[in-house]
């Protein structure tokens, strides 16, 4: 870890995160280097979203060392779920251009800003749908559109909160490709996920948490049976074909969200017609 030195985009040591003085997550030390994807894994309520909020400055933190990008538009974020009105009269391109506003301030967008928007659309593979109304896109396309919005500010760090939830296979593959392209471009990524296979596929290192840090190291070293069992002490979980003993209804919640997104998709396609 120390080898990453000062070049790391995120450098956090002995940090705790929480709201209103109550600590949700304690004793966390990790770093994210440029061009690296770090998986953030833990059961529901482990403090993953609080950690992401802490990096964005929307949750409180205490730390021995805490270095994150602070410039305008330097952090991009893709939330788990957004409350977006599908009837809102904006095109996909206008939504992606919104992501440029933190860099713009009151300035009028120039050629570079327009190029950043176009590139973001191309990165997520939606350039052809740019003139389409955002609300008419399918659930998966909307999510990729919101990812493009986060990319339009040309972030150094990208925070993805459960980006694979409820995606169909095609959108999933597209997202994996996008993540690989971003890594090659030198963007640092912090990705929360429940899917250990996906973590293995794209994440170089993994931060395993449950109220406190369980482990942080190369993904292959972290995602062992004992470590995951320690983190998910009382949850249903499947790893390498083994089902770990559990009591929490994690899987049920997961399925519920999935159903909701699918319903959303169906309605979206209906509207488009």
């Amino acid at each position: 870890m120390s080898a990453s030195g000062t070049s790391a985009v995120v450098e956090v040591e002995g940090a705790s995160f929480g709201y209103g003085g109550a600590r949700v997550l304690e004793d966390v030390s990790f770093s994210v280097r440029p061009g690296e994807a770090v998986a953030l894994i833990g059961p529901n309520g482990a403090g993953k979203s609080t950690l992401l909020a802490g990096i964005l400055g929307l949750a409180e933190h205490e730390a021995r060392a805490f270095r994150v990008p602070t410039g305008r538009g330097e952090i991009g974020a893709l939330p788990q779920a957004s409350e977006i009105d599908p009837a809102f009269p904006v095109t996909l391109e206008q939504v992606v251009a919104m992501g440029r506003t933190p860099r713009l301030g009151l300035r009028w967008p120039g050629a570079h800003d327009r190029r950043a928007v176009t590139e973001a659309l191309e990165t997520v593979g939606l350039a052809a749908l740019r003139r389409k109304r955002f609300g008419d896109l399918s659930g998966g396309q909307r999510q990729r559109g919101l990812l493009a919005r986060a990319l339009a500010s040309e972030p150094r760090l990208l925070l993805l909160d459960e980006p694979f939830n409820g995606l169909d296979q095609a959108s999933r593959d597209a997202l994996l490709e996008t993540i690989a392209a971003l890594k090659a471009r030198g963007v640092a990524l912090l990705i929360t996920t429940h899917d250990l296979d996906l973590a293995r596929a794209v994440c170089d290192r993994t931060l395993l948490v449950n109220g406190r840090q369980i482990a942080f190291d190369d993904t292959a070293c972290v995602l062992t049976l004992e470590q995951v069992e320690a983190a998910f002490a009382s949850h249903v979980f499947e790893l390498d074909g083994h089902t770990l003993a559990t009591t929490e209804h994690h899987a049920a919640e997961h399925a519920e969200r999935h159903r909701r997104l699918l319903a959303d998709d169906a309605a979206g396609e209906h509207d488009a017609r």
Binding site: L56, G57, L58, R72, G73, I75, G76, A77, P79, S82, E83, I84, D85, F88, V90, Q94, V95, M98, G99, T101, P102, L146, R149, A150, S153
Partner: peptide, 16 residues
């Protein structure tokens, strides 16, 4: 204003 009207929490996260 458009960003904040469309997606207030997204705008907050983006640092607006």
């Amino acid at each position: 204003q458009l960003f904040a009207a469309f997606d207030p929490s997204g705008a907050r996260r983006a640092g607006l």
